[in-house]
């Protein structure tokens, strides 16, 4: 019988809530309270997430974010700053001991990115995994991914770019050298792509989610059953949002 994992479609939430829910699922999974879980979600308002090791002040123009109504949050995963606007974000939470998850961290990135690539193929997009944590199509990045392992549990979350607005992104992110900002923007425009750009049409969030669901099912030989967050997860998520992700102490810690 095909193994069943839980699918969560939690809609569009704030940056604080999104990061709190991912961590709540991680903790619940580590206690054996919930099955392995794949979650699809979006961000409202748009937000920038920064990697665990990044300096908020180095990476983000906080005043510009506040002016534009863009939230910002520090992730529990490493990696770089991401502007979350027109994208599908996924997270996958699985015990480290699960036979489908490679023990070697880089191999597990490749495996989970494999699910995203299968999803993209369903949409008619061929892509490749480029270590450490990118997926590219036609040589341009379409997905960035970040993984943590805590309490013997793997959490990986990542983006699937549906559309991209590099100019807005760079009005919110700081660059090391303002003098070369224009060149940097031009470079990034050359290096990033999106579903819309590749297919020449807009694809609805739900259609991308449907394709990704199949991608994860095929990659991990599982069936995803739509479910909801358990009450314990909701309680944990509220606690993490309040005590961690919405606090200055957490977001400005580096």
């Amino acid at each position: 019988m095909t193994e069943q994992w839980r699918l969560l479609q939690t809609g569009f939430k704030t940056a604080y809530s999104n990061m709190a829910v991912d961590k709540a699922i991680l903790v619940a999974t580590s206690k054996g309270k919930v099955p392995p879980t794949v979650r699809f979600y979006g961000w409202n308002p748009p937000a920038i997430s920064i990697g665990y090791f990044q300096s908020l002040n180095d990476e983000i123009d906080i005043e510009a974010c506040e002016r534009c109504g863009v939230d910002y949050v520090r992730r529990i995963t490493g990696g770089g700053a991401v502007f979350h606007q027109k994208e599908l974000t996924y997270s996958i939470v699985v015990p480290e001991s699960h036979p489908e998850i490679p023990k070697h961290i880089l191999n597990s990135y490749g495996r989970i990115c494999g699910a995203v690539m299968r999803g993209l193929r369903r949409l008619g997009i061929e892509s490749q995994y480029v270590p450490i944590n990118d997926i590219v199509s036609g040589g341009r990045k379409i997905s960035g991914n970040a993984q943590t392992r805590k309490f013997e549990t793997v959490l990986q979350h990542g983006t699937v770019l549906m559309d991209v607005d590099v100019d807005t992104m760079f009005s919110l992110l700081k660059v090391p050298d303002e003098k070369i900002k224009d060149k940097l923007i031009a470079d990034v425009k050359q290096r990033v792509t999106s579903i819309r750009h590749l297919l020449g049409k807009e694809v609805h969030f739900h259609e991308v989610a449907r394709a990704m669901k199949t991608g994860f099912e095929e990659e991990f030989h599982i069936e995803l059953i739509e479910g909801t967050l358990r009450s314990e997860e909701l309680t944990l998520a509220k606690q993490f949002e309040h005590d961690c992700f919405s606090t200055k102490e957490w977001n400005h810690r580096r």
């Binding site: 990697g51 090791f53 180095d58 529990i76 995963t77 490493g78 770089g80 961290i105 450490i132 970040a146």
Partner: peptide, 9 residues
Amino acid sequence: TGDFFAYPE
């Protein structure tokens, strides 16, 4: 600081 990964963080 930076955009690298470290385990455990």
